[in-house]
């Protein structure tokens, strides 16, 4: 990998920005070049939110990424807006708890994950973003999973009870992502 770009997209409040930041922090801790670019503009509470993370071995050029290799959509409007933009050969993760549709593209890998349901079972629906992030890291291996958990501990170390829920959410997501990757390799 020389450079990987991923967009997280959903409603404001779904932890989109946090998921992206955690990935960027992890990349930085692993010695990579990283950039985290938020959507910013006239936004409203409850409106759409998205951010793009670039993880690279080299100096990062354009921070504007129109066709990222990976896109994680947390809600239906994000699927409609971003689904078509995944780079051919890339990965689309759909939060199937809230999105009742899928992508008909056959030139990308599509992974549907009931992230809200998994997060609920792990202890809090608020950890939905961690389920998706875990699945993304499992399916792509962009950063080491252990490094991701280390970074989460570093960022949330003081909130012990929440940390356990987030660990669990990450683990569950990671397993689904890893399995999908293995299946893809097997073809």
């Amino acid at each position: 990998m020389s450079q990987y770009e991923v967009t997280f997209a959903g409603f404001g409040g779904q932890g989109i920005m946090t998921a992206g930041q955690l990935l960027a922090y992890t990349g930085m801790n692993a010695g990579k070049q990283v950039a985290w670019i938020p959507s910013y503009g006239p936004e409203m509470r409850g409106g759409t939110a998205y951010c793009t993370v670039v993880v690279s071995d080299e100096r990062i050029g354009s921070p504007i990424i129109n066709r990222p290799q990976g896109i994680c959509v947390f809600n239906r409007p994000s699927l409609d807006k971003f689904g078509p933009r995944v780079k051919p050969g890339g990965l689309l993760i759909i939060n199937s708890s809230l999105v009742d549709a899928t992508s008909d593209r056959d030139d990308i890998q599509v992974l549907e994950i009931p992230a809200n349901d998994i997060a609920q079972k792990a202890g809090s629906g608020k950890a939905t973003n961690m389920v998706v992030l875990g699945a993304f890291v499992g399916a792509t291996g962009i950063v080491e999973f252990d490094k991701l958990k280390e970074t989460l501990t570093e960022k949330m170390g003081r909130k012990k009870d929440l940390l356990q829920i987030n660990y669990k959410a990450l683990d569950e997501g990671y397993e689904l992502g890893r399995k999908a990757k293995e299946e893809k390799v097997k073809g």
Partner: peptide, 10 residues
């Protein structure tokens, strides 16, 4: 510019 202000980097 707004991009430099809003973006996060190491």
């Amino acid at each position: 510019d707004g991009m430099i202000g809003q973006m996060m980097e190491a």
